[in-house]
Simulated scan of single mutants.
Amino acid sequence: MRIREPAAALTLLVLCGGCANPFKQIYPGMTRQQVLEKMERAPSSTELFEDAYSAWYYGEDQCLLFREEVVVAKQQTEVTTNVKTPIGSLREEIKPQCLPPGVTRPPRVEREVDVRFPRGVGARGRQTQEEEKPQDGQERN
């Protein structure tokens, strides 16, 4: 009997993969009211644009783009680098920006470095910056 209980709990967890994160259950075509019901909270910040566009941000890692009260896009933080070694780690993320067509901004990149040296000595750093990625044919200086 004990073997079945953990297996049943694991099955329930797998079947309810999106239950813990309601953002996964949001899709284009949903209304603002439907989003509020699924997320069970208001956005942490909002941004208004021209042509009836607006963006809702849930923390720094999730955003929804609306047009005329309906979701047209969503975005989450994208992990671009995640390296772990015995002497340290590096993680780079690109934070979401829900922008309407024609609006551009440099991406917001966040890097975290953790270096471990022998005998417990180490260094940890975090960098957040907005940078322009070079387009094809351009080089960085």
Rank of each mutant, 00 (worst) to 15 (best):
G122V: 12
T85R: 15
R91L: 12
T128C: 01
G18Y: 07
M30T: 02
S45R: 14
V35N: 00
P134A: 11
Q25I: 00
V103T: 13
A7I: 14
E5P: 00
E40Q: 15
K24G: 05
T46G: 03
Q62E: 15
R126S: 05
C63L: 06
L99I: 00
V79P: 02
T80C: 01
V35Q: 01
R126D: 05
R126H: 08
P96S: 10
T80E: 10
K95P: 00
V35K: 01
K95H: 12
W56T: 01
V109E: 10
T11R: 11
T77K: 09
I94K: 11
D61I: 02
S89D: 06
V103F: 10
E92T: 14
A42W: 03
E78G: 01
V109W: 08
T80D: 02
E5H: 02
N82C: 02
V103S: 03
I26Y: 04
G88E: 12
F23N: 02
P106R: 09
K133Q: 14
C63V: 07
Q62F: 15
Q138N: 07
L15D: 05
Q34S: 10
A8V: 00
V109Q: 11
A55S: 13
L65N: 01
E68A: 14
V70E: 06
T85Y: 00
S89W: 04
T11W: 09
L12H: 02
D136S: 09
S54I: 05
E92F: 02
P43I: 08
L48N: 10
N21V: 04
V70M: 13
R67E: 15
Y58K: 05
E130R: 14
M39T: 06
R140G: 03
A7H: 06
R124F: 11
V121C: 04
E130N: 12
M30Y: 08
A55W: 03
Q129K: 13
P100T: 12
R119T: 08
R140H: 07
L10I: 06
A52Q: 12
E130G: 01
K95R: 12
T31K: 10
V14A: 13
A20W: 07
Y53L: 04
E93C: 05
E130K: 09
C19F: 14
D51R: 14
D61H: 15
A7W: 03
R108P: 00
Y53K: 05
